[in-house]
Design a protein around this nucleic acid. Sequence first.
DNA 1: CGTCTATTTGAATGTACTCAAAAGCGGTGG
DNA 2: CCACCGCTTTTGAGTACATTCAAATAGACG
Lengths: 191, 191
Amino acid sequence: MFQEVNKNVTRYYTFSENELNTFNSLLKPLNLKKKTFLLQAGEVCNVEAFIKKGCLMTYLLNEEGKETVLYFSIENWWVSDICSFNDQTKSDFYIQALEDSELLILTPQTKEELLFKVPNFERTFRLMIQKNLGVMQGRLHSIIAKSAETRYNDFLKRYPSIPQRVSQHHIASYLGVTPEFLSKIRAKKAK
Amino acid sequence: MFQEVNKNVTRYYTFSENELNTFNSLLKPLNLKKKTFLLQAGEVCNVEAFIKKGCLMTYLLNEEGKETVLYFSIENWWVSDICSFNDQTKSDFYIQALEDSELLILTPQTKEELLFKVPNFERTFRLMIQKNLGVMQGRLHSIIAKSAETRYNDFLKRYPSIPQRVSQHHIASYLGVTPEFLSKIRAKKAK
DNA sequence: CGTCTATTTGAATGTACTCAAAAGCGGTGG
DNA sequence: CCACCGCTTTTGAGTACATTCAAATAGACG
Protein backbone atom coordinates (compact mmCIF):
# COMPACT_ATOMS: atom_id res chain seq x y z
CA MET A 1 0.00 0.00 0.00
CA PHE A 2 2.61 2.55 1.05
CA GLN A 3 5.70 1.04 -0.48
CA GLU A 4 5.93 3.42 -3.44
CA VAL A 5 5.12 6.58 -1.55
CA ASN A 6 7.62 5.74 1.15
CA LYS A 7 10.27 5.14 -1.43
CA ASN A 8 9.38 8.46 -2.99
CA VAL A 9 9.73 10.57 0.16
CA THR A 10 12.86 8.69 1.20
CA ARG A 11 14.65 10.08 -1.86
CA TYR A 12 15.20 13.29 0.05
CA TYR A 13 15.71 12.18 3.64
CA THR A 14 15.93 8.80 5.36
CA PHE A 15 12.97 8.68 7.69
CA SER A 16 12.74 6.15 10.50
CA GLU A 17 10.19 3.38 10.35
CA ASN A 18 8.28 5.17 13.03
CA GLU A 19 8.17 8.40 11.08
CA LEU A 20 7.02 6.59 7.97
CA ASN A 21 4.25 4.93 9.97
CA THR A 22 3.08 8.31 11.17
CA PHE A 23 3.18 9.55 7.57
CA ASN A 24 1.25 6.57 6.27
CA SER A 25 -1.42 6.83 8.94
CA LEU A 26 -2.17 10.35 7.71
CA LEU A 27 -2.56 9.41 4.04
CA LYS A 28 -6.06 8.72 2.75
CA PRO A 29 -6.66 6.60 -0.34
CA LEU A 30 -8.73 8.19 -3.08
CA ASN A 31 -9.76 6.55 -6.34
CA LEU A 32 -10.63 8.68 -9.33
CA LYS A 33 -12.47 7.41 -12.37
CA LYS A 34 -11.20 8.42 -15.78
CA LYS A 35 -12.33 11.91 -16.84
CA THR A 36 -13.31 12.97 -13.31
CA PHE A 37 -11.73 15.94 -11.60
CA LEU A 38 -9.49 16.14 -8.57
CA LEU A 39 -9.83 19.92 -8.74
CA GLN A 40 -11.74 22.44 -10.82
CA ALA A 41 -11.06 26.12 -11.38
CA GLY A 42 -12.79 28.26 -8.75
CA GLU A 43 -12.41 25.67 -6.04
CA VAL A 44 -9.82 25.69 -3.28
CA CYS A 45 -7.35 22.84 -3.65
CA ASN A 46 -7.56 20.70 -0.57
CA VAL A 47 -5.37 17.81 -1.60
CA GLU A 48 -1.79 17.00 -2.17
CA ALA A 49 -1.97 13.67 -3.93
CA PHE A 50 0.59 10.96 -4.53
CA ILE A 51 -0.22 8.87 -7.59
CA LYS A 52 0.01 5.14 -6.93
CA LYS A 53 -1.50 4.29 -10.26
CA GLY A 54 -2.95 6.22 -13.14
CA CYS A 55 -2.40 9.43 -15.02
CA LEU A 56 -3.69 12.96 -14.52
CA MET A 57 -3.27 16.31 -16.18
CA THR A 58 -3.27 19.81 -14.78
CA TYR A 59 -4.52 22.49 -17.14
CA LEU A 60 -6.07 25.91 -17.36
CA LEU A 61 -8.68 27.43 -19.65
CA ASN A 62 -8.41 31.02 -20.81
CA GLU A 63 -11.34 33.33 -21.57
CA GLU A 64 -11.82 31.86 -25.05
CA GLY A 65 -11.80 28.33 -23.68
CA LYS A 66 -8.33 27.49 -24.94
CA GLU A 67 -6.71 24.75 -22.88
CA THR A 68 -3.11 24.94 -21.62
CA VAL A 69 -1.65 21.80 -20.07
CA LEU A 70 0.84 22.61 -17.34
CA TYR A 71 1.56 19.07 -16.17
CA PHE A 72 1.04 15.44 -16.92
CA SER A 73 1.39 13.40 -13.75
CA ILE A 74 1.85 9.65 -13.56
CA GLU A 75 2.79 6.95 -11.07
CA ASN A 76 5.11 8.04 -8.27
CA TRP A 77 4.55 11.74 -8.79
CA TRP A 78 2.68 14.17 -6.62
CA VAL A 79 -0.06 16.37 -7.99
CA SER A 80 -1.72 19.44 -6.48
CA ASP A 81 -2.20 23.15 -6.91
CA ILE A 82 0.25 23.86 -4.16
CA CYS A 83 -0.41 27.62 -4.12
CA SER A 84 -4.14 27.19 -3.69
CA PHE A 85 -3.57 24.42 -1.17
CA ASN A 86 -1.23 26.51 0.87
CA ASP A 87 -2.98 29.87 0.83
CA GLN A 88 -6.48 28.39 0.66
CA THR A 89 -7.22 30.61 -2.31
CA LYS A 90 -9.33 29.73 -5.33
CA SER A 91 -7.44 27.78 -7.96
CA ASP A 92 -7.25 28.54 -11.68
CA PHE A 93 -6.46 24.93 -12.47
CA TYR A 94 -8.30 21.83 -13.49
CA ILE A 95 -6.77 18.54 -12.42
CA GLN A 96 -8.38 15.69 -14.28
CA ALA A 97 -7.82 11.94 -14.36
CA LEU A 98 -6.90 10.72 -17.85
CA GLU A 99 -7.10 7.11 -16.61
CA ASP A 100 -8.70 5.44 -13.62
CA SER A 101 -6.29 6.48 -10.88
CA GLU A 102 -5.41 5.49 -7.33
CA LEU A 103 -4.18 8.31 -5.14
CA LEU A 104 -2.97 8.80 -1.61
CA ILE A 105 -3.87 12.22 -0.35
CA LEU A 106 -2.90 14.73 2.26
CA THR A 107 -5.25 17.54 3.24
CA PRO A 108 -4.20 20.86 4.79
CA GLN A 109 -5.04 19.33 8.17
CA THR A 110 -3.17 16.07 7.77
CA LYS A 111 -0.21 17.86 6.20
CA GLU A 112 0.02 20.21 9.16
CA GLU A 113 -0.23 17.28 11.52
CA LEU A 114 2.51 15.51 9.62
CA LEU A 115 4.79 18.55 9.73
CA PHE A 116 4.11 18.91 13.43
CA LYS A 117 4.84 15.28 14.22
CA VAL A 118 7.68 14.80 11.75
CA PRO A 119 9.24 18.21 11.15
CA ASN A 120 11.78 16.76 8.75
CA PHE A 121 9.01 16.50 6.19
CA GLU A 122 9.24 20.25 5.88
CA ARG A 123 12.57 19.79 4.12
CA THR A 124 11.23 16.98 1.97
CA PHE A 125 8.39 19.14 0.71
CA ARG A 126 10.77 21.99 0.09
CA LEU A 127 13.03 19.78 -2.00
CA MET A 128 10.09 18.39 -3.94
CA ILE A 129 8.95 21.88 -4.88
CA GLN A 130 12.49 22.86 -5.72
CA LYS A 131 12.72 20.01 -8.22
CA ASN A 132 9.42 21.08 -9.65
CA LEU A 133 10.66 24.64 -10.01
CA GLY A 134 13.69 23.34 -11.89
CA VAL A 135 11.41 21.51 -14.30
CA MET A 136 9.34 24.64 -14.89
CA GLN A 137 12.42 26.74 -15.54
CA GLY A 138 13.49 24.19 -18.13
CA ARG A 139 10.10 24.27 -19.80
CA LEU A 140 10.03 28.04 -19.95
CA HIS A 141 13.45 28.02 -21.54
CA SER A 142 12.49 25.41 -24.08
CA ILE A 143 9.33 27.18 -25.12
CA ILE A 144 11.08 30.52 -25.48
CA ALA A 145 14.25 29.28 -27.15
CA LYS A 146 13.31 26.19 -29.13
CA SER A 147 11.12 25.31 -32.09
CA ALA A 148 7.98 23.22 -31.68
CA GLU A 149 9.69 20.32 -33.44
CA THR A 150 12.60 20.35 -30.99
CA ARG A 151 10.26 20.60 -28.03
CA TYR A 152 8.35 17.57 -29.26
CA ASN A 153 11.52 15.53 -29.70
CA ASP A 154 12.76 16.55 -26.25
CA PHE A 155 9.40 15.58 -24.79
CA LEU A 156 9.51 12.13 -26.41
CA LYS A 157 13.00 11.55 -25.08
CA ARG A 158 12.22 12.76 -21.59
CA TYR A 159 8.80 11.20 -21.10
CA PRO A 160 8.70 8.22 -23.46
CA SER A 161 5.76 6.61 -21.68
CA ILE A 162 3.42 9.59 -21.81
CA PRO A 163 2.58 9.65 -25.54
CA GLN A 164 1.23 6.13 -25.29
CA ARG A 165 -1.19 7.18 -22.61
CA VAL A 166 -2.25 10.67 -23.60
CA SER A 167 -4.02 12.03 -26.69
CA GLN A 168 -2.10 14.19 -29.12
CA HIS A 169 -4.56 16.93 -28.50
CA HIS A 170 -3.29 17.17 -24.92
CA ILE A 171 0.37 16.75 -25.83
CA ALA A 172 0.02 19.59 -28.32
CA SER A 173 -1.39 21.78 -25.59
CA TYR A 174 1.47 20.84 -23.27
CA LEU A 175 3.98 21.76 -25.97
CA GLY A 176 2.20 25.01 -26.73
CA VAL A 177 1.10 24.23 -30.30
CA THR A 178 -2.18 23.34 -32.02
CA PRO A 179 -3.08 19.66 -32.52
CA GLU A 180 -2.99 20.21 -36.29
CA PHE A 181 0.53 21.49 -36.18
CA LEU A 182 1.72 18.66 -33.95
CA SER A 183 0.25 16.26 -36.48
CA LYS A 184 2.32 17.94 -39.20
CA ILE A 185 5.46 17.65 -37.10
CA ARG A 186 4.78 13.93 -36.74
CA ALA A 187 4.13 13.52 -40.45
CA LYS A 188 7.45 15.17 -41.21
CA LYS A 189 9.30 12.90 -38.74
CA ALA A 190 7.67 9.77 -40.19
CA LYS A 191 9.16 10.14 -43.65
CA MET B 1 21.22 46.93 7.50
CA PHE B 2 18.88 44.01 8.06
CA GLN B 3 15.58 45.82 8.20
CA GLU B 4 14.39 44.90 4.72
CA VAL B 5 15.50 41.29 4.78
CA ASN B 6 13.91 40.76 8.18
CA LYS B 7 10.67 42.24 6.93
CA ASN B 8 10.89 39.94 3.94
CA VAL B 9 11.29 36.69 5.85
CA THR B 10 8.69 37.76 8.41
CA ARG B 11 6.04 37.68 5.69
CA TYR B 12 5.85 33.93 6.13
CA TYR B 13 6.43 33.39 9.82
CA THR B 14 6.90 35.69 12.79
CA PHE B 15 10.39 35.02 14.04
CA SER B 16 11.54 36.14 17.47
CA GLU B 17 14.13 38.88 17.83
CA ASN B 18 16.61 36.23 18.84
CA GLU B 19 15.96 34.15 15.77
CA LEU B 20 16.31 37.17 13.54
CA ASN B 21 19.63 38.00 15.18
CA THR B 22 20.87 34.50 14.46
CA PHE B 23 19.69 34.91 10.88
CA ASN B 24 21.37 38.27 10.48
CA SER B 25 24.64 37.07 11.93
CA LEU B 26 24.83 34.45 9.17
CA LEU B 27 24.24 36.86 6.30
CA LYS B 28 27.29 38.25 4.49
CA PRO B 29 27.14 41.50 2.56
CA LEU B 30 28.26 41.36 -1.05
CA ASN B 31 28.43 44.28 -3.45
CA LEU B 32 28.31 43.67 -7.17
CA LYS B 33 29.30 46.22 -9.78
CA LYS B 34 27.06 46.66 -12.78
CA LYS B 35 27.63 44.02 -15.48
CA THR B 36 29.49 41.65 -13.16
CA PHE B 37 28.27 38.13 -12.52
CA LEU B 38 26.96 36.53 -9.36
CA LEU B 39 26.99 33.21 -11.20
CA GLN B 40 28.08 31.94 -14.60
CA ALA B 41 27.04 28.80 -16.45
CA GLY B 42 29.26 25.87 -15.58
CA GLU B 43 29.84 27.04 -12.01
CA VAL B 44 28.12 25.69 -8.93
CA CYS B 45 25.83 28.27 -7.36
CA ASN B 46 27.05 28.93 -3.83
CA VAL B 47 24.84 31.83 -2.91
CA GLU B 48 21.29 32.58 -2.07
CA ALA B 49 21.18 36.33 -2.22
CA PHE B 50 18.72 38.88 -0.89
CA ILE B 51 18.79 42.11 -2.86
CA LYS B 52 19.00 45.19 -0.65
CA LYS B 53 19.57 47.46 -3.59
CA GLY B 54 20.02 47.02 -7.29
CA CYS B 55 18.77 44.87 -10.12
CA LEU B 56 19.93 41.55 -11.54
CA MET B 57 18.86 39.21 -14.27
CA THR B 58 19.04 35.44 -14.54
CA TYR B 59 19.40 34.12 -18.07
CA LEU B 60 20.61 31.20 -20.13
CA LEU B 61 22.37 30.98 -23.46
CA ASN B 62 21.56 28.21 -25.92
CA GLU B 63 24.01 26.64 -28.36
CA GLU B 64 23.61 29.46 -30.88
CA GLY B 65 24.17 32.07 -28.20
CA LYS B 66 20.55 33.14 -27.96
CA GLU B 67 19.75 34.63 -24.57
CA THR B 68 16.65 33.72 -22.57
CA VAL B 69 15.88 35.81 -19.49
CA LEU B 70 14.20 33.76 -16.79
CA TYR B 71 14.05 36.41 -14.08
CA PHE B 72 14.57 40.03 -13.34
CA SER B 73 15.25 40.51 -9.64
CA ILE B 74 15.10 43.78 -7.76
CA GLU B 75 15.06 45.12 -4.21
CA ASN B 76 13.54 42.82 -1.61
CA TRP B 77 13.70 39.71 -3.77
CA TRP B 78 15.96 36.73 -3.46
CA VAL B 79 18.06 35.48 -6.33
CA SER B 80 19.87 32.18 -6.79
CA ASP B 81 19.97 29.05 -8.86
CA ILE B 82 18.35 27.09 -6.12
CA CYS B 83 18.76 23.71 -7.85
CA SER B 84 22.48 24.14 -8.34
CA PHE B 85 22.82 25.56 -4.84
CA ASN B 86 21.02 22.66 -3.30
CA ASP B 87 22.47 19.75 -5.24
CA GLN B 88 25.86 21.38 -5.73
CA THR B 89 25.61 20.68 -9.45
CA LYS B 90 26.83 22.89 -12.28
CA SER B 91 24.42 25.63 -13.18
CA ASP B 92 23.15 26.50 -16.66
CA PHE B 93 22.41 30.06 -15.60
CA TYR B 94 24.09 33.40 -15.68
CA ILE B 95 23.11 35.82 -12.94
CA GLN B 96 24.32 39.28 -13.77
CA ALA B 97 24.00 42.66 -12.11
CA LEU B 98 22.23 45.19 -14.34
CA GLU B 99 22.98 47.93 -11.80
CA ASP B 100 25.46 48.27 -8.96
CA SER B 101 23.85 46.02 -6.37
CA GLU B 102 24.05 45.38 -2.65
CA LEU B 103 23.30 41.83 -1.61
CA LEU B 104 23.10 39.82 1.58
CA ILE B 105 24.09 36.26 0.96
CA LEU B 106 23.72 32.82 2.42
CA THR B 107 26.08 30.02 1.43
CA PRO B 108 25.29 26.30 1.65
CA GLN B 109 27.13 26.30 4.98
CA THR B 110 25.43 29.32 6.52
CA LYS B 111 22.05 28.17 5.23
CA GLU B 112 22.49 24.77 6.85
CA GLU B 113 23.57 26.45 10.07
CA LEU B 114 20.52 28.69 9.92
CA LEU B 115 18.18 25.76 9.37
CA PHE B 116 19.84 23.91 12.23
CA LYS B 117 19.60 26.81 14.64
CA VAL B 118 16.21 28.11 13.50
CA PRO B 119 14.33 25.17 11.98
CA ASN B 120 11.33 27.34 11.22
CA PHE B 121 13.29 28.83 8.36
CA GLU B 122 12.75 25.56 6.57
CA ARG B 123 9.11 26.52 6.15
CA THR B 124 9.95 30.04 5.12
CA PHE B 125 12.21 28.80 2.34
CA ARG B 126 9.57 26.33 1.26
CA LEU B 127 6.96 29.05 1.00
CA MET B 128 9.32 31.33 -0.88
CA ILE B 129 9.94 28.64 -3.48
CA GLN B 130 6.25 27.88 -3.64
CA LYS B 131 5.51 31.50 -4.52
CA ASN B 132 8.21 31.35 -7.14
CA LEU B 133 6.70 28.21 -8.61
CA GLY B 134 3.35 29.98 -8.84
CA VAL B 135 4.98 32.81 -10.76
CA MET B 136 6.61 30.37 -13.18
CA GLN B 137 3.34 28.55 -13.77
CA GLY B 138 1.76 31.87 -14.62
CA ARG B 139 4.54 32.73 -17.05
CA LEU B 140 4.32 29.40 -18.80
CA HIS B 141 0.61 29.86 -19.19
CA SER B 142 0.97 33.37 -20.55
CA ILE B 143 3.62 32.43 -23.09
CA ILE B 144 1.61 29.45 -24.31
CA ALA B 145 -1.79 31.07 -24.36
CA LYS B 146 -1.27 34.78 -25.02
CA SER B 147 0.06 36.98 -27.79
CA ALA B 148 3.31 38.88 -27.41
CA GLU B 149 1.38 42.13 -27.20
CA THR B 150 -0.74 40.87 -24.32
CA ARG B 151 2.31 39.52 -22.52
CA TYR B 152 3.99 42.89 -22.81
CA ASN B 153 0.97 44.73 -21.44
CA ASP B 154 0.68 42.26 -18.57
CA PHE B 155 4.36 42.72 -17.85
CA LEU B 156 4.03 46.51 -17.71
CA LYS B 157 1.10 46.23 -15.36
CA ARG B 158 2.73 43.72 -13.08
CA TYR B 159 6.24 45.14 -12.95
CA PRO B 160 5.87 48.84 -13.75
CA SER B 161 9.28 49.73 -12.36
CA ILE B 162 11.30 47.24 -14.39
CA PRO B 163 11.06 48.80 -17.86
CA GLN B 164 12.65 52.00 -16.52
CA ARG B 165 15.68 50.06 -15.34
CA VAL B 166 16.18 47.39 -17.95
CA SER B 167 16.94 47.58 -21.68
CA GLN B 168 14.28 46.54 -24.18
CA HIS B 169 16.63 43.95 -25.49
CA HIS B 170 16.40 42.13 -22.15
CA ILE B 171 12.68 42.68 -21.75
CA ALA B 172 12.13 41.21 -25.21
CA SER B 173 14.08 38.14 -24.18
CA TYR B 174 12.05 37.84 -20.97
CA LEU B 175 8.84 38.01 -23.00
CA GLY B 176 10.13 35.51 -25.55
CA VAL B 177 10.22 37.81 -28.59
CA THR B 178 12.92 39.56 -30.60
CA PRO B 179 13.90 43.14 -29.70
CA GLU B 180 12.71 44.27 -33.14
CA PHE B 181 9.27 42.86 -32.61
CA LEU B 182 8.97 44.39 -29.15
CA SER B 183 9.83 47.70 -30.72
CA LYS B 184 6.98 47.23 -33.18
CA ILE B 185 4.57 46.40 -30.38
CA ARG B 186 5.59 49.62 -28.66
CA ALA B 187 5.22 51.64 -31.86
CA LYS B 188 1.70 50.28 -32.29
CA LYS B 189 0.76 51.14 -28.69
CA ALA B 190 2.15 54.66 -29.02
CA LYS B 191 -0.28 55.74 -31.70
C1' DC C 1 31.60 66.29 -30.21
C1' DG C 2 32.35 61.78 -31.71
C1' DT C 3 31.84 56.97 -30.83
C1' DC C 4 29.43 53.11 -29.33
C1' DT C 5 25.31 50.88 -28.25
C1' DA C 6 20.29 50.64 -28.18
C1' DT C 7 16.15 51.29 -30.60
C1' DT C 8 13.34 51.88 -34.66
C1' DT C 9 11.81 51.02 -39.31
C1' DG C 10 11.04 48.29 -43.49
C1' DA C 11 10.92 44.37 -46.64
C1' DA C 12 11.12 39.59 -47.24
C1' DT C 13 10.56 35.20 -45.02
C1' DG C 14 9.11 31.48 -41.99
C1' DT C 15 6.83 29.21 -38.40
C1' DA C 16 2.75 28.17 -36.60
C1' DC C 17 -2.43 29.05 -36.72
C1' DT C 18 -7.30 28.82 -38.52
C1' DC C 19 -10.81 26.68 -40.78
C1' DA C 20 -12.69 22.99 -43.38
C1' DA C 21 -12.82 18.50 -44.87
C1' DA C 22 -11.20 13.78 -45.21
C1' DA C 23 -9.32 9.70 -43.24
C1' DG C 24 -8.45 6.56 -39.45
C1' DC C 25 -9.69 4.10 -35.34
C1' DG C 26 -12.16 2.02 -31.45
C1' DG C 27 -16.18 0.58 -29.46
C1' DT C 28 -21.04 -1.06 -29.81
C1' DG C 29 -24.95 -3.35 -31.47
C1' DG C 30 -27.33 -5.86 -34.93
C1' DC D 1 -18.36 -10.53 -37.95
C1' DC D 2 -19.14 -6.41 -39.93
C1' DA D 3 -21.51 -1.95 -40.21
C1' DC D 4 -22.08 2.25 -38.11
C1' DC D 5 -21.21 6.02 -34.94
C1' DG D 6 -18.35 9.25 -32.51
C1' DC D 7 -13.98 10.88 -31.65
C1' DT D 8 -9.12 11.60 -32.87
C1' DT D 9 -5.81 12.49 -36.21
C1' DT D 10 -4.38 13.92 -40.72
C1' DT D 11 -4.22 16.85 -44.77
C1' DG D 12 -4.54 21.16 -47.35
C1' DA D 13 -5.17 26.02 -48.44
C1' DG D 14 -5.06 30.50 -46.91
C1' DT D 15 -3.58 33.65 -43.23
C1' DA D 16 -1.38 35.88 -39.25
C1' DC D 17 2.01 36.58 -36.00
C1' DA D 18 6.65 36.88 -35.29
C1' DT D 19 11.53 36.49 -37.17
C1' DT D 20 15.57 37.73 -39.93
C1' DC D 21 18.48 40.82 -42.01
C1' DA D 22 19.81 45.36 -43.22
C1' DA D 23 19.88 50.08 -42.65
C1' DA D 24 18.58 54.40 -40.43
C1' DT D 25 17.93 56.96 -36.23
C1' DA D 26 18.25 58.03 -31.49
C1' DG D 27 20.50 58.08 -27.07
C1' DA D 28 24.23 57.56 -23.67
C1' DC D 29 28.76 58.36 -22.23
C1' DG D 30 33.45 59.73 -22.09
